[in-house]
Amino acid sequence: MTGTVRRFGKVTRAVHWTVALLMIICIVTAAILYNASFAVAIGHRRLVELVHVYSGFALPVPILLGAISAAYRLDLRRLNRFTRAEWRWLRSRRRRDGSIKVGKFNAGQKLNAALSGGAIAALLGTGIIMYFPSLTRLSWRTGATFVHDWFALAVGLLVIGHIFYAIKDSEARRGMRTGRVSASWAWAEHAAWAEEVLGSQQDKVRESQPDVEQEHLQ
């Protein structure tokens, strides 16, 4: 295939990059608050804490605001739904060879999205309990600290895994940067989605359908 296909709309990309920025701020400030050497060397606990807390409060905002876009809502709906084939894909050793056709998102991406979303909600709730100690009894605050620590560790691992896969795939990065990916990448990585958007639009390509532009491979 020689051409590109639209993968992410402006809103989806804006949500992704805003959340990415806030998440990185949360992780860096969390490291300063948690690690003894950083905490004492950098100090200024109140300032670091404020940056951490307000970045955390802000984090769900773009995720929710994105819902003004129909394309973003559809992305969320696709991430939400798992078919039997996807459980098979997750268990299969041959999941990367294309024998099980993958939709717009593969099952790993869906899992990452769900676990990240749930963890963000858990971190937000426990963070509120810790930041406003007068709201709850002490034992809840102790429980919240414990839960916050473990979910933070889990989210850190998810983010590292996410960046690891992104580093390995420049076309996937291009998709999130520019909104478009090569059709050949779409067929290789997300065949069912390529069928959906390219298969049905094959005929329209010649009519210069705006979403599928002709382009020479390098």
Partner: peptide, 25 residues
Amino acid sequence: VDGKPVGRRAILGLIALAGAGVASG
């Protein structure tokens, strides 16, 4: 979009897990 809403269930499950962790103190 086919399939079951596993993502939503996972999110609600994690929230419930966090709530249990908070309550267990």
